[in-house]
């Protein structure tokens, strides 16, 4: 179980590296799709079927949108790459960030033993208060419905922005 989880996580990291480094744009988009599907399987391992459903569906749609941007180009291969100074800078920054993150993770509750002070309240009293069996939905739509409202607004605004950028009528 644990070994399988680590293997999937390592596979995802390798997929991310391939997606960033490969020269063909179509292959990069496909490998990012593979990373997303693996992420959905990881969510299933971590006991989150809700998120797994959302992730696999959203990944499909995201892949379609990214493919829409990639295909129908005359040339989908990259030739030019950035100079080595920026690469060196980002690599040094990554090393420093990794060390600092390692030190910060020592203070977090260790993997597999979450804190859950508020969530215990939700889990114990959620059924009596809302009569909903799926506790993710009861948190999403009852205890924390403000967040959902804000999320719906953000989605609305971003879709509106995309349509306003794309539409032909009303410009010029």
């Amino acid at each position: 179980m644990e070994v399988l989880l680590y293997a999937l996580l390592g596979f995802m990291v390798v997929g991310c590296i391939i997606a960033v480094e490969i020269k063909d744009l179509l292959s990069a988009v496909v490998s990012v799709g593979i990373v997303g599907i693996c992420l959905s399987v990881v969510f299933l391992f971590l006991g989150a079927p809700d998120i797994a459903i959302v992730q696999v569906v959203v990944e499909t749609l995201c892949l379609i949108i990214l493919l829409r941007a990639t295909v129908q180009r005359d040339d989908t291969t990259i030739y030019k790459y950035i100079e080595s100074f920026a690469v060196a800078t980002i690599l040094i920054f990554s090393g420093v960030f990794m060390v600092l993150a390692y030190r910060a993770f020592k203070d977090l509750p260790s993997f597999g033993h979450p804190l859950m002070t508020v969530s215990q309240e939700y889990l114990r009293e959620g059924l009596a208060k809302t009569k909903a069996v799926n506790f993710v939905t009861s948190v999403l739509l009852d205890f924390r419905a403000y967040d959902t409202l804000g999320e719906a607004t953000v989605l609305f605004v971003s879709i509106l922005g995309a349509i306003a950028v794309l539409r032909r009528r009303g410009r010029r």
Partner: peptide, 13 residues
């Protein structure tokens, strides 16, 4: 959505 995994977001997508 309130009984099994799912809900408005994945259903809409």
């Amino acid at each position: 959505g309130h009984i099994t995994p799912g809900g408005g977001f994945p259903g809409g997508v």
